[in-house]
Design a protein around this nucleic acid. Sequence first.
DNA 1: TTGTACGCGTTATCAG
DNA 2: CTGATAACGCGTACAA
Lengths: 335, 335
Amino acid sequence: MVLLGENRHTENTMPTIDDVAKLANVSRATVSRVLTGTRGVRDDSREAVLKAVEVLDYRPSFAAQTLASNTSGYIGMVLPAHEASFSATLLPRLSLAVKALNKSLLIQYVNDENEQKAAIHSLHHQCAAVVTLSHASSDMPANVIAFDAFSTKGSANQGYNYAFAAESACRYVLGKGHRNIALLVDNEDDVASKQMLEGYRSVLQNYSLPFNRQLLVMANNNIEQALLKLINSFTKYTAIIAKRDSYAAEAMRLLREFNIAVPQEVSIVSLEDSPLAALLYPPLTCIAYPVDQLLEQCIQRIQSLIDGHPVFVEEGKSITGRLVARASVTDINAM
Amino acid sequence: MVLLGENRHTENTMPTIDDVAKLANVSRATVSRVLTGTRGVRDDSREAVLKAVEVLDYRPSFAAQTLASNTSGYIGMVLPAHEASFSATLLPRLSLAVKALNKSLLIQYVNDENEQKAAIHSLHHQCAAVVTLSHASSDMPANVIAFDAFSTKGSANQGYNYAFAAESACRYVLGKGHRNIALLVDNEDDVASKQMLEGYRSVLQNYSLPFNRQLLVMANNNIEQALLKLINSFTKYTAIIAKRDSYAAEAMRLLREFNIAVPQEVSIVSLEDSPLAALLYPPLTCIAYPVDQLLEQCIQRIQSLIDGHPVFVEEGKSITGRLVARASVTDINAM
DNA sequence: TTGTACGCGTTATCAG
DNA sequence: CTGATAACGCGTACAA
């Protein structure tokens, strides 16, 4: 038997600002000043302080800082647990940005919408800003940012529009001669999924094509089952538009098991374009989700939330996905 | 004495424990007691407090709590940015566990080992525990946990042993008749990669097979280039053992481009088994990285760090990966 | 330029 | 069981 974690004899004497002050022969205030860089400090004092900091390996306490300054040092982030793979691409960059702002990233994963609301509620007091995935309800506190929907009450159509992306995907496969297009979304309540459906239907209407409810498949946290239902139905489809790469990947896997060739018999487009997309076989055509631009906007928003500046949003600049053509779509006309 | 609350007219003020106390006609202390459940409180007082909390939508400030209680409410986590996809599988579960412990998860991504050290250093004072990926140096503070290597100085062989996993993978493909096995690792300095190499060499020795340096390929953050070098060399190999699923996936992609069939011409095994593994074509055989067990150990360790209990680790129970046989390995003998 | 004193929201301590 | 009061570590007017 091995004993781990007997830290009782190591008295956790974390050095305080007073220790530094004492060692540098100055007052607490001076130490604080050189660390925060607020006011001018005489050079020798500054050096003495810095040296003392070095010697003691002193780090100011985040907690005490936020408490004293009345301005939270935290940026909160609440994420759906099932979005883990996606949020992973966000996290490193957001973490970096947050560090640049001299703040700390506080993260909480949630399983459903209720937990999400609760988490946001419990966090938004403690944080300078809290960003969350998927559209926030309209009654959210002022300092919560919905990552993919920045729309403030005044300005509509900001943020990413899944309807537009779905439209692009539709038109793309339609241009390749496909007329029976299945749509792969999350579930009934998901706002993005609703938007996708909207764009999908609008394009169908434009092309005077009928809407077949059988071709609308909702993952509902069990993409395999949902896909099996589609495959087993005798509905005809030659193209699939998936909300996520993982859905597309699962579709590929299943189709392969049923000896349905991609893209010869069924073409697939995704609205994500994660690293996964290029690794699949065949490589996945995407309307790429514009993480970079969204991220930049998000960071700007955080910035503005921190220092009170109002957000500056260019009106015409809506964010749209880029088409990344790969091999998962075939041209029916050319066959 | 009754002080009328004239502080309510500023809209941005979040309710404090004093507000609750006033509304419930008790003292701060009582409020704190019912909220933390430390001491018994008369029923009517308790109810009054709870009601007041409800009315004001009061949430205790994390910062103030950690400051006052001298026991940090944070669990820190520092992660390599390039491990994003992997850490994503960890985060949700860890977040949940942390919530259960009534603590908050503080995350920081880093780009290299120096940043990692700095981050750990800056965090470990503020946090009850900080967990990090990849092996921590031996001189780490007592409250940092290396997720995949729990070994304290005294006890060897705790945590996950990549050498053992690599051995398993080797023996597996050797059993399938492969004799020329390439090894795909991160880089020279990575401890896990070193372990893999160790296991690899030991098995080779066991089978009296020569070690060919050409078959050792290091990704060095550019897996594609590294793989190309292997492919372009005229070294013979019929099997590849990859540290990560993404490496294996990239290998599959590249081999396909060069018209090398997997698994007919080259078999592949990975030491990870992420969701990606089953989605690839052909599905990827793995020595599965035991996230679940590691996670459980990690959480126990955090627990023990929090409440000072020393943790008991059963000596014989070393954590090993499970073989998940899929289609990416072929039996040469049977061909 | 520097130091003093106070406040931030909470928990711990001690007295009733 | 409850209530005052003292920490906790730090920022910051205000005074020197």
